[in-house]
């Protein structure tokens, strides 16, 4: 091999490696963007759930104590997302407390069955918003998991492909809809497994 051939092989190798790095960076960027859209969707669903809980609290279908406490916790859950400097990651406890308060305020299936039509409708809307929160949270955490896996790769770390983008973390909250109450999907004639 003469010098020109060696140079050609080196250039080819550099090009191949560069292309692989570029691909890897692209995939990482896509994964990051997926986290961003999943986060926007999750925040949207959490806000919708708080609003549904506020509607229920203000409808006069719960006892006054439950009304006040559900309204308080819904407000706290809402402001934990919308206040200046609020961040999704720190909103978990407020969201869990809303879940907890609503579960206590709604009681059992027969308590909901005894509500008037407006009450049952509002509970249905809340159940639906709640279900969407559980979906959005699962998708968000999956997206986060993907980024974390990609970023743990040796090449990604060595070449600092993630730049200064902070490492995303999963969103943890208690989003268990009371098992005993009508499920969000029941009224739509479908079942989830």
């Amino acid at each position: 091999m003469n010098g020109a051939e060696v140079a050609l092989i080196v250039i080819a190798a550099v090009l191949v490696v560069g292309w692989a790095v570029w691909l890897s960076a692209q995939r990482l960027d896509r994964a990051h963007r997926r986290v961003n859209t999943a986060q926007a969707s999750l925040v949207h669903q959490l806000v919708a759930r708080s609003v549904a809980a506020l509607d229920l609290a203000h409808a006069g279908v719960l006892d006054p104590v439950s009304s006040i406490l559900v309204a308080e916790s819904a407000r706290a859950a809402l402001t934990s997302l919308t206040d200046d400097g609020a961040r999704l990651t720190s909103s978990g406890p407020a969201q869990s407390e809303l879940s907890n308060t609503v579960r206590q305020a709604l009681g059992h299936r027969q308590d909901v069955a005894q509500m008037d039509e407006l009450g049952r409708e509002l509970v249905g809307e809340l159940a639906s918003a709640w279900y969407r929160v559980t979906l959005a949270r699962r998708f968000y955490n999956q997206a986060v998991g993907l980024v974390r896996r990609r970023r743990s790769g040796k090449a990604v770390r060595a070449l600092r492909l993630a730049g200064r983008t902070p490492m995303p973390i999963t969103f943890e909250m208690d989003d268990t809809w009371p098992e005993d109450l009508p499920q969000a999907t029941e009224s739509e004639g479908r079942t989830v497994s």
Partner: peptide
């Protein structure tokens, strides 16, 4: 149920059973 209220956490009873 522990609930944040008036600046502290109180254990309150509410809901249909209470």
């Amino acid at each position: 149920v522990p609930v944040h209220y008036n600046g502290s956490v109180a254990r309150l009873a509410f809901g249909p059973m209470a």
